[in-house]
Lab assay of single mutants.
Amino acid sequence: GTEDLKEEAKKALKKGDKERAKRALKKAGLSEDQIKKFIKEVL
């Protein structure tokens, strides 16, 4: 589900894998702006 994808994105970001995080967030249905915001909040 969406929460799982967001968790996956957080883990990817902590490993420095932004591309993987972006893919997971796109799958979760987030827009580009939401993805940028999510990444900023996590990092």
Score class of each variant (00 low, 15 high):
K6S: 04
K27H: 06
A12E: 05
S31T: 13
K10F: 06
K26M: 09
V42I: 12
D33T: 08
T2N: 12
E19P: 06
K6Q: 09
K26G: 07
K18Y: 15
K37V: 10
L30M: 12
D4M: 12
E3V: 11
D17A: 04
S31A: 05
L43I: 09
K11Y: 04
A12P: 01
K15W: 07
K11V: 11
D17F: 07
T2L: 14
I35V: 05
D17K: 04
R23K: 12
A12G: 02
V42D: 03
E3Y: 04
K26F: 05
A24L: 15
E41G: 09
A21M: 04
E19K: 07
K22R: 13
K26L: 10
L43V: 06
A12D: 05
K6L: 15
L13S: 01
D17Y: 06
T2F: 14
I39H: 01
R23T: 11
L43M: 12
I35E: 02
A24N: 06
K15R: 12
I35M: 06
K10N: 04
A24K: 06
G1W: 13
V42R: 02
A21W: 03
E7K: 09
K18P: 13
D33S: 10
A21Y: 01
G16T: 01
K18Q: 13
L13T: 02
T2D: 12
E19W: 05
K36H: 12
E32G: 06
Q34A: 10
L5P: 06
S31D: 12
Q34F: 05
F38R: 03
G1A: 13
E7M: 10
K40A: 15
K37G: 13
Q34N: 05
E32I: 08
G29I: 00
D33V: 08
I39F: 12
K27L: 13
K10P: 00
A21G: 03
K11I: 13
K6A: 07
I39A: 02
G16L: 04
A28R: 01
K22Y: 14
V42M: 11
E8D: 07
K22Q: 11
K18D: 09
E3C: 09
L30K: 00
K11H: 10
E19M: 07
A28W: 03
